[in-house]
Amino acid sequence: MQSLNKGIVMKDRIAGLLAALVCALALGGCVTINIYFPAAAAEKAADKIIDEVWQIKKDADAASGDKPAAAR
């Protein structure tokens, strides 16, 4: 009787471990792409540096703020 109980507990343990492993692999898979190379972050960093080096001004604010006032 006792050995039968032990067998069931062991089975539960293994099932739990397997569940943990599957979940970890699934979650890890989502993250791996990011760890490999963060293309979007690299693009953002590149844009920031290029704007500085070439002195490209963010005139979107100035244009939207000035033009309507000048037109009126």
């Binding site: 943990a20 979650l27 972050a41």
Partner: peptide
């Protein structure tokens, strides 16, 4: 356990360079 592992992995992935 799986959640903890997942969160640890996600923390390693960076949003910014």
């Amino acid at each position: 356990v799986a959640l903890m592992l997942g969160v640890a992995g996600a923390a390693l992935a960076q949003a910014n360079l």
